[in-house]
Design a protein around this nucleic acid. Structure first.
Lengths: 234, 234
DNA sequence: TAGTGGTCTAGACCACAGC
DNA sequence: CTGTGGTCTAGACCACTAG
C-alpha cells in the first residue's frame, strides 16, 4: 500500500493509516502476525517489530491467544513540550541576552529548603532576566542545590543561562512543572516593564535525579506578550 | 547487573542506569553491539532491540561505522501532560458537574473558520462551565468541525463533557496547545465568579487528524485557584 | 488444549562513514 | 577498504488465555 525503505516501516504506516482513517475502529482485531507475514512476505520478527512500535505509540494492544486490537483512545492526556528559553528566543530569530542581577552562595534558608525540598546544605541562588531582541522576555529566579551540583558554584551564568547549563551538564531523571497565572506586583513591574496588575504567567520547575534534588526555577513571563505554545508529541 | 525477565529489558536498564548515574557521560561511546552480545551472552537482535528502545527515548544515538554514543542532553524540552478536565477533578476527589450554557449548529462564521482553520461547512459551537465540588472550575468554549465529526451533532454534551467525548470517540494524529495569561473581562467575571482584572489562564487546543481539522477548544481557569501541574514523562 | 503473542537465536546481506 | 549499525530471515521455545 505504501512505498518505503524498510518493510517494518511500511507495515507500520499501513496499519496506522487504516486506524486513523477509521477503517479499523477501536476494538477491531487486526490480522494475526502470521497473516501479516504472508501479506507482506516477510518474517514474523519484522511484523512483530512493526506491531511493537504501534503498541508503544498506544495505537494497538495485544493479548496472547486472542490477537492484537486497535486501542480505545485513552488519550485523556496530551503531551506538551517546554523549550529552553535561549533556544526559544533563538528559534524566533531574535537576539538573546541575559542579565544576571543576583548571584549568591548561602546556607539554605527556610524558603530555600522548602522550595528545593532539602534539609540543609548550601545553595546557589540566582536572579536573572532573559531578553529577546533587546526587550525583557522573562524574569527568572533559580535555586541550585550545591550538594547535588557542586560544580555549579564555579560557572559564570552571565555567559550561559542557568537552565541551559544545567540541562546540558547535569543528568536528571524527573521533573515537575507548575504553570499559574497571577497579577503582576512590584518586582515584575520594573524587571519586565509592565504595569501593575497585568496578568503574568509563572512557570515553576523542580528537577531531581533519583532522590536528589537538583534545582528549582520560577520563570515569569508577561501575559500579554507571551504564550507557551506546544505541539503534541506522538 | 539488574535482575529482570527479558534480556533486552535488562540490557536497557543497565545502560540507562550508567547514563543516569553519570558514569557514561554525554558523548561517551558505549560498547559495540558485538561486545554487548558477548557481555550478556545473547544474540545481536536482542542487543539491538535494547539499543533501539534507548534511541527512541533519546538517550543514545548511533552512527554507522563509528558506534553508539550517549546523547548530549538536547533535553531543552520537557514534556507536560494536560489531563482531561473531568478526570482531573475526579482525581482530586471532588465531584464533577458540567453546565452546558450554549449549543448551536451553524454555518461556519468567519471567526469559526479562522479558529478551526477550515474553509466552510457547518460547526457545532458549545459553551460550558466545568464545576468541581460545586464551585466553578473552568469556562470552556468549543468548536467542532461537523465535516470531520458528523456524529457529534447527535451527542448530548450535558452528560459527557465535549473534551472527554471527543478524546474517546475520535482518533486524532496531532494537537497544538497555547497557554496564555490574561486579565479577566466581562464574560469570565460572571461564569467563574471572579473580579475584574483578576489574572486568568487560558488553555487553547487545536486538534486534527491528518489534514482534517477536528476541534478547537479554549478553556479559561481562574489564576488564583488553578495551577496546571505536570510531571515529566520519561 | 490449541493457538496466540513474547521472546530469542545464529546466522546473513547491505549501506555507510571513518580510516 | 573495513567495521559499524540497519535490517531481515527462518526457524525455535515459552507463557498465557480463550474456548
Amino acid at each position: 500500500m505504501t512505498e518505503s525503505g524498510a518493510i517494518h516501516a511500511r507495515i507500520r504506516r499501513d496499519i496506522e493509516a487504516r486506524i486513523m482513517s477509521g477503517e479499523w475502529a477501536p476494538g477491531t482485531r487486526i490480522p494475526y502476525e502470521h497473516q501479516l507475514m504472508a501479506t507482506y512476505g516477510c518474517s514474523r520478527m519484522t511484523v512483530n517489530r512493526a506491531l511493537r512500535m504501534l503498541m508503544e505509540a498506544g495505537l494497538i494492544e495485544s493479548r496472547r491467544r486472542a490477537g492484537t486490537f486497535v486501542s480505545h483512545p485513552r488519550v485523556q492526556r496530551a503531551a506538551l513540550e517546554i523549550p529552553d528559553i535561549r533556544d526559544e528566543v533563538a528559534g524566533q530569530g531574535e537576539s538573546y541576552r541575559l542579565d544576571l542581577d543576583r548571584r549568591e552562595i548561602r546556607a539554605a534558608s527556610e524558603e530555600d529548603k522548602r522550595l528545593l525540598q532539602i534539609d540543609g546544605g548550601s545553595v546557589l541562588a540566582l536572579e536573572c532576566r532573559h531578553h529577546a531582541g533587546g526587550r525583557a522576555y522573562a524574569l527568572e529566579r533559580r535555586l541550585i542545590n550545591l550538594a547535588a551540583v557542586p560544580e555549579a558554584a564555579e560557572v559564570d551564568f552571565a555567559i550561559e543561562p542557568p537552565g541551559s547549563w544545567l540541562l546540558s551538564h547535569v543528568p536528571w531523571t524527573e521533573a515537575e512543572h507548575r504553570i499559574t497565572a497571577f497579577n503582576a506586583g512590584g518586582k515584575e513591574l520594573v524587571a519586565l516593564g509592565i504595569s501593575a496588575g497585568a496578568a503574568c504567567m509563572a512557570l515553576e520547575r523542580w528537577t531531581w535525579r533519583g532522590e536528589e534534588r537538583i534545582t528549582y526555577a520560577r520563570q515569569v513571563y508577561p501575559g500579554d506578550r507571551y504564550a507557551l505554545v506546544a505541539r503534541f508529541r506522538p
